[in-house]
Structure formats: C-alpha cells, structure tokens
Amino acid sequence: MAKRAPSKRSKTSGRRKTASGTSRLEAIKETLTPGPATKTAIRITGWLALAAGVTTGLVMGIPELEQRAVARDLQSTNDLTIEFQNAPDWFRIDRTLPRELEGIVINTVGDHRRSARIREGLIEAHAALEATHWFESLDQLRWIDADTIRVEGRWVRPAAVVYAKIDGENKDVLVDVRGHRLAYAFEAGSARDLPRIKGADRSLAPPVGDFWGDDVVAGIALNDAISDRGWSEQIQLIDVSNHGNSKRGLVLRTNGCSIIWGRSPDDPSPSEVPTAQKLEYLDYYAREFGDFEEHCAGGELDARPDMLIQSPNSMIRDRSR
C-alpha cells in the first residue's frame, strides 16, 4: 500500500486565519470601548449624579440650619407675649379666656423656643388653639420679635346659651351664631346678658365644637330678628320645644306671658304673616300697653295671624297703619 504523503499546511492559510481572529478581537474591543460621544455622556452623567447628591444634602440640611438660625435670633430671657389680632370686644371683657389661650400657646411653644424645633412649636400651638373651637378659621401663628407671637384668624361669635345637661347638671351652655357648642357653661339662669334658648331636642349638651341642632339655629335667628327692639329686654327665653310643630312653632316667653311666634324668621311660611308684620304687631302692643307681663300675665299673644290675638278672649288690632 502506498503511503500518503503528509499534507503540508499552507502558510498563507494560517496567516489568513490569524488575521481573521485578530479582526474579531479588534471588533469586540471596538464594541466594548466607548467612543468620544459616549465618553462625554458618561462624564456628564457622573457630574450630574455628583451635583444631585450635593443638592440633596443641601436641601436636607438647610431647613434645620434655618431653624437653628431662627432659634438663635429669637433667644431671649423675657416672658413670651401673645397677641391676638382682631380680637373681638367680647374676648376682652375679662382676662379669663385671654389667659387661657395665652397659656396654651406659651406652654406649647416654650419647650421649643430655644431649640432647632422652633417651627414645630408653632405648628403644635396652632393645632392646640384650633382644638379650643374659639376660631372659625385659624390662619397662622408667627413670631413678631424675640418675645412676641401673633395669632391671626377669624373668631367665632357667641350668640346665646342653651339650657341643657352637662354631667347630670342643668347648665346654660354657650353656642356661636352657627349653632356650634362653645367651651363655656354657666349656672342655669345666671348668664342674664345672653339670649337663652330652652327646649332643644338635644337635651344633653354635645361635645365642644359640635353642631347642636336646627332648633337651636332657629332660636338664634329669632333672637337676631328681635334684638334691636326695645321690648326684647322683656324676653326671658326662646322656647324651641315646638320648633317642628307647624301648629305652634317658636315661642317667646317673658316672666308671665307667652308670645307665639311660629316659624323661624329664616324659614317663613305662607300660612303666617311675614316677620316684619309680626314685629310691627309687637311694636304696637309695646307702645300701647308698655309691659307684656302686666297686660298679658298668664296668657298668650299669637303673632302669626293677620291680627295680634291675645288669649283667652281678646283680639288686638294693629292700628299703627
């Protein structure tokens, strides 16, 4: 058998394969190596990341630095003064309520006055004042100087007292013009300068700040309607126990006379004369007879029909027109 001569690898072929392998490596290298544009983008991204980190640190640090600066600027050994901006006259009648609200602010802010949490003190005082329900809206508390905080907001307007029970005791409980209960209560019959409402459906006083009821609002509206009349001083209370009863409605009571008013002034009915006519009837009666108690003792005046009727047997026409 003839022997096959060993084949000789072509040098040219080897060089071709080597060149081909080198080309692939260079291609891979070029693929993995960023070009000039990519390098620029990477550098920009790095700088942006660094800038973002620095900015985040500053944003997180500045509020605390500001609060520390405020605390430093407001350091004082003097007592705090609390200013209640646009406080109504009733608020200044005596110092009881001002001292109470001042104490709330001073006690709340005092712990933070010389610390970096000075703003938190104002926030906590704001919440504490809102919880007293003496403000319809509380806008802000702010430092005026190192010793003074100003309270800015809209105050409630006390309107009347409502006869009700608190902890089993009969009290006259203060309400505002919206019919919301306020924090003060008096011995029954002792708040003589305030209109008195009796017979509310809700005989137990609601929590402070809660709406009492439509009957109480109706009583407040009736008091507003008669408050500028001279004879209104004779009215001892507004009875709202029949507020929902169309046959009777609201009743004004003096010591010895009941005046059937009917529907609330803010909820009129075609079956009754208008509020203005009812007022004219009672104005006429006061001019002619002066005292409800003396001439209507034990009886009633009905202001709802086309003429003022006094029970049990008399009819009083309005001769004022």
Rank of each mutant, 00 (worst) to 15 (best):
P6I: 13
K8R: 06
K11Q: 15
R15C: 09
K17N: 11
G21C: 05
K29S: 00
L32Q: 11
P36T: 15
A37P: 01
T38L: 05
T40E: 15
A41S: 11
T45M: 12
L48D: 02
A51I: 15
G53V: 10
T55R: 08
G57T: 10
S76Q: 06
D79S: 09
I82E: 03
P88W: 09
P88T: 10
T96S: 07
T96Q: 08
L97K: 03
P98T: 08
R99W: 13
R99F: 09
G103S: 10
I104E: 04
V109S: 02
G110F: 06
D111I: 14
D111L: 15
R113D: 13
S115A: 12
G121A: 11
L122Q: 01
E124P: 01
E124S: 10
E124Q: 09
E124T: 08
A128L: 09
L129H: 07
T132A: 10
E136R: 00
D145V: 08
I149L: 05
V156D: 07
V162M: 07
V173A: 05
L174W: 01
L174V: 04
D176C: 11
R181S: 12
L182S: 02
A183F: 07
F186I: 03
L194M: 10
P195L: 05
P195F: 07
G199S: 03
V208A: 05
G209D: 00
W212D: 05
G213V: 04
D215G: 09
V216P: 00
A221N: 09
L222H: 03
D224H: 12
D224G: 08
A225S: 14
S227G: 00
G230V: 12
W231C: 01
Q234I: 08
Q236G: 15
L237R: 14
H243D: 06
K247G: 13
G249N: 12
V251L: 07
L252R: 10
R253Q: 13
I260R: 13
W261N: 12
G262C: 08
S264L: 07
S264K: 06
D266V: 11
D266M: 04
D267A: 10
S269N: 03
P270V: 03
E272R: 07
K278G: 03
L279W: 02
Y281L: 02
D283E: 06
Y285E: 01
Y285R: 02
Y285G: 02
F289G: 03
E293V: 04
E294W: 04
G299K: 10
L301E: 06
A303H: 11
D306A: 07
D306R: 14
L308M: 09
I309D: 02
Q310S: 04
Q310N: 00
R319V: 05
R321A: 14
R321C: 08
